[in-house]
Design a binder for these strands. Structure first.
Lengths: 190, 190, 190, 190
DNA sequence: GATGAATGAGTGTTCATTCAT
DNA sequence: CATGAATGAACACTCATTCAT
């Protein structure tokens, strides 16, 4: 028998993201995605149970990749702020580099599909971020507020800023990025 | 006849928001919306050129309503921070009260429809906000950074926090709201 | 607005029966039926909720028509045997005349759709038959056995004999038909 | 290897019957049948040229088995009626025991597949039945009518009565079965 | 102005079958 | 022999929109 094709798998993912990027979530049909991926619509169902699962799988993948990208280049002996800055910049650069992922991510996260994602597969990858924030709170460096608030003011802006649609006219110099992180930090620091 | 018209118009808008809320942007069809509004699909086309325009019109309406809700209860003699707080709290409360609008707004804003909205109809209503921020910058109270950055750290969080999907588990006490504004302010203030 | 077209309704029914007749239940698709009826597949859904309902509706229609055809040309003062013979011959002739209905009926009755038919719409039309049989039993003319047995030996053969597929090679003279009814009668009479 | 083959062959047959039984002829797909049989869809094509042939093969098998079941437990010196009764009861009991076969048989026999079955493989197994009937005619015990008529009134009811769908509510005591055969006999006897 | 009927084009999905392994 | 991957064609059904009334 033939063996499942890793390349096809990947092509499918990239095709999905590209199509969603170009024509939006609502208009992205299985047929268009398959065509872009260079496979038959039927083949899609060899790799994913249905359209919903395809989209959820891709979302999960990207989120995990983002987390992995964020969690590098620091060590736990560094000060909280330095670690967070490292993570923030890592994340921001990953998103800028993969801007086309963001359109997918944001459309997905605002769709009803989002409610159905198995978050337990994603959350562990963000553990280091959670821990360093907790450390910051313990050290009285970061405001002792509901974690949701910290996320909204520190992590979300990273995504919003990288978003083409919402901040498309905004070209980022190194200086801008520094400023942006400073604002995130000011928001959450004590 | 005029009265009947307006009632239908409004029913159509509320029906659209409700349907989008319940089944998402991608699954919301003209037929379902019309049914929910208690009118014929054909009638929809009396009021809006096509489906896209219906959605854009509603988005614009809500945004203007949000702006109007924000721009009340202060006068320009007050300090910048107080005015901004008033606006922020006004906006947040409006959004909490109309949470079902937010699901529509967010799905819309992340879709390609957004690119096609005539922003010049919305922007004037946010002028007071822009002006008070500029005053803050001139008075060296607010960071002199790209306006986009100020928006991302001060206004966006207001919407994100009110969003069911993204912050569903978060119940807001008055204290939380105060905290939230403080963080927004810390992010943008000098 | 346009008005629902009775002719289209009927064309749809005849087309369905014809298609099922020609290519069988399992291969009869909505597309083929619609094409045969000269309408768009989408139009089919204006007249019937879905394919299942279309088939059930047609089955019910035919059964009622058959019952109506059977219950004519006699009066209740006649002897039981004469009434039954009248009904039997009426039915048989109706079926021979509409042989193409039988293929549909038989395929339908052996499919899972059958389990879902609302029999209470059909049964009342067969009431006169039930009653005359009961009279026969009371008068000790007909065997006092389970009604199901009487049905199997008296009514079913009428349908089987008219069935193209099962008795295709059998050309019926008047004599044959008389013989057939005599056998049915012999089976059930005391 | 031979043994394994036969096991698969049999599993395939039983799976097909089961699936047809459960979801009907029209919905029974190769994939579902293969899954039920615990084999790959591709393997099915090792044993049968295509889906049609699979179904025809199974029909033929069952019909032959039914014939074999009927043609036991008597000898040709017995009276015609006794022999026929033996056959009828044998057949009826076989069908009751294998009720799940009947759903398949009946759906098949009313489908266009039926027209394509090679009857010459089945008919020889029913020869003894044909012969005893002919003897009955010669002995002036059985009506001298078209054989098709005899089949319709004597053999078909045996199948109809055993059919779940059509006589589901009818529970058979020994007495009922005796009655049923008596009716079949009354129909065909002189 | 308001409507339900009507539809071509499209939806997501499954089909029977083939093929490389 | 046996398989799971692969697919073009078909599936039932829904879409946004138009049109006669």
């Amino acid at each position: 028998m033939r063996v499942k094709d890793e390349a096809k798998q990947k092509a499918l993912r990239e095709a999905t993201i590209k199509v969603v990027n170009q024509i939006g979530f609502a208009s992205s049909s299985v047929a268009k995605i398959a065509k872009e991926a260079g496979i038959s619509p039927a083949t899609l169902y060899v790799y994913h149970k249905d359209k919903d699962e395809l989209l959820c799988d891709i979302y999960t993948d990207i989120k995990i990749e983002l987390a992995r990208a964020m969690m590098t280049g620091f060590d736990h002996s560094q000060p909280v702020r330095d670690i967070l800055k490292r993570m923030w910049l890592n994340g921001f650069r990953y998103l800028i580099k993969h801007r086309h992922y963001l359109s997918f991510i944001d459309q997905f996260a605002n769709s009803p599909f989002f409610d159905v994602v198995d978050m337990s597969r994603i959350e562990p990858h963000f553990e280091p971020l959670i821990r360093v924030i907790q450390r910051g709170i313990e050290q009285k460096i970061i405001k002792d507020v509901h974690p949701e608030l910290l996320k909204v003011f520190a992590v979300r802006p990273m995504m919003t800023l990288a978003n083409q649609r919402q901040c498309g006219g905004f070209a980022f110099s190194e200086e801008h990025i520094e400023e942006a992180f400073r604002m995130a930090w000011d928001a959450i620091r004590l």
